[in-house]
Nucleic acid binder design. Structure first.
Length: 831
RNA sequence: GCGAGGGUGGCGGAACUGGUAGACGCACCAGACUUAGAAUCUGGCGCUUUGGCGUGGGGGUUCGACUCCCCCCUCUCGCACCA
């Protein structure tokens, strides 16, 4: 059985799509070079992980990007539109183990298959620039960047408590822990002490935060998420002297104005001062047991809600440096060692957590911030007051407003040498060590004599071994491969051990957009000139799930690469479009829910153009797209209607030169509609990529064209207008359904391809209406409509409105108080 | 709890700086063509007792509110003991 749809009723999408894909491929139509007279435009979609086959989310993402690329080409830009593969990662290992294959084999097979699928969608990529991050020719440059970052001191190694996923057998970055669970497999994440490599992203915290203001072309939501993630807090660090000891406890607070309300001190269970504090005191053993208990509880906690607040008195006291007041030192389970100093000055009157804790253990509550017109009394307080106010019982600072007091108190602490202004971030350094095989090796060597040494540059790349050691699995991590890690020290030539951790795959995706500008450059990670020409990416498109992880890391890398001298930009992505998910039956498509639609089948049934058209038409790109098989039929029907119209009117449409003279009524309407459509489509794309409304505008034009083309009147003066209409339709739609438009353009006998056609020019005069429908309202309610010439004056309009029968009826006997005329729109009569 | 963004026909969605709510499409209904169906074409399609009522609910500003202001309900997403 043939799947082609010949017979004249439906267009043969299979033949047409294959033909044009072949031509684009053979002619390298989308190959891009630099230094063109045209302005550059770099449009990029987030590159896929080669998981096996493309899914509807890919189709949507890449259709959107392709429309942008094709549109910008038609508008005369030199467009860079590349594609590649985020090819390292755990699924390859899992799949390889299951199939007794090798991750590289599995990955490259998938790339092969998915590349073919992308080609079938007719996406206009410059395939010459394709990259796969698992290729040593890619990651060797990443290793070089690593070495340069190491030299610059942006990389360090430390033993810390890391996020460990037992199921993935690897460490995760903070950003990869979602509600206490692994971002990939959803199993609980446990803390674990380990040595690992870190990127000092916190060195860039301030710039990453400040530059968010430059990202005017980003969705507000993403900017806010990043701002919260960086989490800057400004305040005071200051020291509390331990009573009867030389030791000091350093605290951080964002509320120095409440410092006279401190009634106790809370330490995190992991605080290093606890051991010396309690040593030799009577309750030592009891406290020690409590601390251990809290630490185990913390390790066990996962997605559950907040545990109940609890703590224990250490038996020791410290002194408030401002008031000299002696306060008890507690250990509390809600104090985090990772944030601030791991010690909190507790102000129960003005902090909810401290309030709860104080009430539970019967501790003193001293209100020192009074809201306007209110005097707080500790016994009557039912909750902490956290708002602003005026200071009370605060020594020198009493009666100051709280905002002002913050500054004065910090200044005082500095003068008295027991404190300093301080800024803290929630952002942690990026831990990039992974204990897995399928990733880029970290190019370092450990030598017993010389310590940690970088691999000499001429030895790069440190290649990931492709063969298994005898008797082991193909996916064994590097620390189980003596043939890999046994080496000599680059300094002393003695025996040494290679680093066996691989890099987090997010490192690869943090700079790939830059490598696309010079994917085969062999001298350095980046060709400065080409990178400078193309970057930043003008339009980046991808899922909102990357709002923090990938987009924050890429911003960080851009700044690092700038500081290493490779780039001359501060931010990688000027405009960001976060497209919504593709859902079906109200839920995200997923295998477990069984609601997956495979694009492969759809393309086979309807063709790529229909699939693209539907995914663009059914919703604006930033919203979720509800998949609807009947909607796909509708898109297919529209293209087929266009096809039949052209096929059936070919003769008529050819009479371009023959028609002369004044067009009739329908011709004038059509001509006007053409120009109104050009304006609408152009604006819809330019403003916010609302292809759904752009497409509906073209549908309207086509409806007008079909109605205007009465077979009985075909030889009339309208022929050249009809011809203009169909050409405009084909150009306007060509970014969305490129195969069909290319074919029809050719069949209509145009010289040159539709891709070389100029974007149609909007003519305001041609779009102007000659007759207007004016709405007549009485007291704001529509009571009539008038057909009037566009140039009618207001007085005449009012006169006409008042004579309208229905309008007169609603005015009845009332007197007209006022009339409001809105130009070209309406008349409102107030009675 | 904090932050962000939404709630418009049976459905997806339109509506410019306040000015005809429901464009376009899907579904549905009727008709044409057909032996019949599919496909296609034409017309209809918010609710409704024809006077009205309608953009989550209630108030307000205005000649006029999906749009602006206040209060409330609800959904989605992100963060979540951050001192």
């Amino acid at each position: 059985m043939t799947t082609s749809q010949g017979g004249g009723n439906r267009y043969d999408f299979k033949a047409i799509e294959e033909k044009w894909q072949g031509l684009w491929n053979d002619n390298e139509t989308y190959r891009t070079t630099e230094y063109d007279a045209r302005k550059k435009y770099y449009v990029l979609e987030m590159f896929p992980y080669p998981s096996g086959r493309i899914h509807m989310g890919h189709v949507r993402n890449y259709s959107i990007g392709d429309v942008v690329a094709r549109y910008k080409r038609l508008r005369g830009y030199n467009v860079l539109h590349p594609m590649g593969w985020d090819a390292f990662g755990l699924p390859a290992e899992n799949a390889a183990q299951k199939n007794n294959s090798h991750p590289a084999v599995w990955t490259y097979d998938n790339i092969e298959y998915m590349r073919r699928q992308l080609r079938q969608l007719g996406l206009s990529y410059d395939w010459q620039r394709e990259i796969a991050t698992c290729n040593p020719e890619y990651y060797r440059w990443e290793q070089l960047i690593f070495l340069e970052m190491w030299e610059k001191g942006i990389i360090y190694q430390k033993v810390t408590t890391v996020n460990w996923c037992e199921s993935c057998q690897t460490v995760l970055a903070n950003e990869q822990v979602i509600e206490g669970a692994c971002w990939r497999c959803d199993s609980p994440v446990l803390p674990r002490q380990m040595n690992g490599w870190f990127f000092k992203i916190t060195d860039y915290a301030e710039e990453l935060l400040a530059d968010l203001d430059k990202l005017q072309g980003w969705p507000e939501k993403v900017v806010t998420m990043q701002r919260n993630w960086i989490g800057k807090s400004t305040g005071l660090t200051c020291d509390f002297q331990v009573y009867g000891s030389e030791a000091k406890i350093s605290i951080f607070t964002t509320r120095p104005d409440t410092v006279y309300g401190v009634t106790f001190m809370s330490l995190a269970a992991e605080h290093p001062l606890i051991a010396p504090l309690i040593a030799g005191y009577e309750k030592e053993q009891e406290v020690r047991t409590f601390v251990e208990q809290i630490i185990t509880e913390k390790q066990r906690k996962s997605n559950e809600e907040e545990p109940e607040k609890k703590g224990i008195f250490t038996g020791r006291y410290c002194l408030n440096p401002f008031s000299g007041k002696k306060i008890p030192i507690f250990i509390a389970n809600f104090v985090l060692m990772e944030y601030g100093t791991g010690a909190v000055m507790a102000v129960p009157a003005h902090d909810e957590r401290d309030f709860e804790f104080a009430r539970k253990y019967g501790l003193e509550i001293v209100p020192v911030i009074m809201p306007e017109g209110v005097t707080l009394i500790d016994r009557d307080m039912e909750q902490a007051y956290t708002g602003p106010g005026v200071l009370a019982n605060s020594g020198l600072f009493t009666a100051l407003p709280s905002e002002e007091a913050k500054q004065s108190i910090i200044r005082y602490a500095v003068e008295q040498h027991f404190g300093a202004p301080h800024v803290t971030y929630r952002l942690r350094d990026w831990g990039i060590s992974r204990q897995r095989y399928w990733g880029a090796p970290i190019p370092m060597v450990h030598c017993d004599h010389c310590g940690v040494q970088p691999v000499p540059r001429h030895e790069l790349p440190v290649v990931l071994p492709q063969d298994a050691d005898p008797g082991s699995s193909k996916c064994d991590p590097l620390h189980q491969r003596p043939a890999f890690y046994t080496t000599t020290c680059p300094v002393c030539q003695g025996p040494a051990r290679r680093e066996t951790d691989t890099m987090d795959t997010f490192v690869e995706s943090s700079w790939y957009f830059a490598r696309y500008t010079c994917p085969r450059f062999t001298q350095a990670p980046l060709d400065r000139e080409k990178a400078s020409y193309w970057l930043p990416v003008d339009q980046y498109i991808g899922g909102v799930e990357h709002a923090i992880l990938h987009l924050l890391y890429s911003r960080f890398f851009t700044k690092v690469l700038r500081d290493l001298g490779y780039l001359d930009i501060d931010e990688p992505f000027t405009n960001l479009l976060t497209q919504g998910m593709v859902i079906k039956d109200g839920a995200k498509m997923s295998k477990s829910k069984g609601n997956v639609v495979d694009p492969h089948d759809l393309i086979a049934t309807y063709g790529a153009d229909t699939v693209r058209l539907f995914s663009l038409f059914a919703a604006p790109p930033e919203k979720d797209l509800e998949w609807n098989s009947q909607g796909v039929e509708g898109s297919s029907r529209f293209i087929n209607r266009l096809y039949r119209f052209i096929a059936q009117n070919r003769q008529f449409l050819q009479k371009k030169a023959a028609s002369r003279g004044e067009p009739g009524e329908s011709g004038r309407i059509l001509h006007r509609k053409i120009h109104q459509t050009i304006r609408r489509v152009t604006e819809n794309i330019e403003n916010n990529f609302h292809f759904n409304t752009a497409i509906s505008a073209v549908m309207e034009l086509f409806n007008t064209l079909s109605a205007a083309t009465d077979p009985a009147a075909r030889d009339r003066a309208e022929a050249h207008i009809a011809r203009e209409a169909i050409e405009v339709i084909l150009v306007l739609l060509s970014p969305m359904i490129p195969h069909f438009c290319a074919e029809m353009w050719e069949q209509l006998g145009n010289s040159g391809s539709v891709e070389q056609a100029p974007w149609p020019q909007f003519d305001a005069k041609a779009a102007a209406e000659e007759q207007l429908t004016i709405v007549v309202q009485v007291r704001g309610k529509v009571r009539g409509r008038l057909e009037v010439p566009a140039d009618i004056d207001d007085d005449e309009l009012i006169r006409l409105a008042l004579t309208d029968d229905n309008v007169a009826r609603f005015i009845g006997g009332d007197t007209v108080k006022k009339t409001i005329v809105v130009k070209k729109k309406l008349v409102n009569i107030v009675v």
